[in-house]
Design a protein around this nucleic acid. Structure first.
Lengths: 132, 132
DNA sequence: AACGATATTGACAATCGTTTTCATTTAGGA
DNA sequence: TCCTAAATGAAAACGATTGTCAATATCGTT
């Protein structure tokens, strides 16, 4: 539980910048490619390490895709929230569900579980993609 | 969309039996190991193929773990439902959430999304594990 | 019961995302 | 500046899953 010491490096700054600038969710490899594109030669391992550290610190938002790949995105507010994601174009809307939070707590309590967390993602097709 | 033709084989039967008999969620590799244990020499590829086919047909229930590994379990009722899973021992309770269903529909409609689905899992620590 | 088309199997290689290793570099306090 | 531990990166290791393809088994037909 002790705060891990973290030094600020050019690489981490570059990675952070890219994540902030990219819309929607992207894989570590995407981000690495974008970095390379921009001329920042950062190792892939470093990208993975930095992203998971940021996710750990709550500085970026993560989403586990159906095939198990982890996607990262800038985090508007670090509060707990969920996502409505377009299956086709990946557009993401952050949603907030007090109802669901209460419901999960209730279910857990009902079965005498503690230390409760949950994952919830909504997938669908956005109006743009339906029109297109 | 045409129904794939499916022949019944000893291997598939054996795999199905194991899944039916094992409690909670297990990985394809777990199931393969159990099969080997019992003397059924079934190829690992076959286990993977059979399980994803069964999942596709709605004959077994799947869960995507945090690290991306897919877990399978016998499916009590094929109706839509969610899970309350013990992080420690893996004990699983099937839960049903009309509230959540309605809420996700509502959120999707609000943002004009259609063809909506969602994933929801609750993780926690069960009373047994807390006591132990 | 034998036939034949094709679905299925299984050993193995290949893939792909991610993690580890470890020697080298770098940040940042003393 | 010096020093120590954190950070980096190239490459290898890893682990789950999928592809390959020749051999085999299923099942409707003869």
């Amino acid at each position: 539980m002790s705060d891990p010491i973290r030094r600020s490096t050019k690489q981490r700054a570059a990675i952070y910048d890219v994540v902030q600038q990219l819309p929607n969710f992207h894989s570590a490899q995407d981000i690495h490619a974008e970095l390379t594109q921009r001329g920042s030669r950062v190792g892939l391992s470093t990208v993975y390490r930095a992203l998971s550290a940021m996710a750990n610190d709550g500085d970026v938002d993560t989403l586990l895709r159906d095939d198990g790949e982890t996607l990262y995105r800038q985090c508007a507010d670090s509060a707990h929230h969920h996502h409505l994601v377009c299956r086709q174009c990946g557009a993401t809307i952050e949603v907030d569900g007090p109802t669901v939070e209460i419901w999960t707590q209730h279910i857990a309590a009902q079965h005498d579980f503690d230390d409760v967390s949950h994952t919830l993602e909504i997938f669908g097709r956005c109006p743009q993609c339906r029109a297109g």
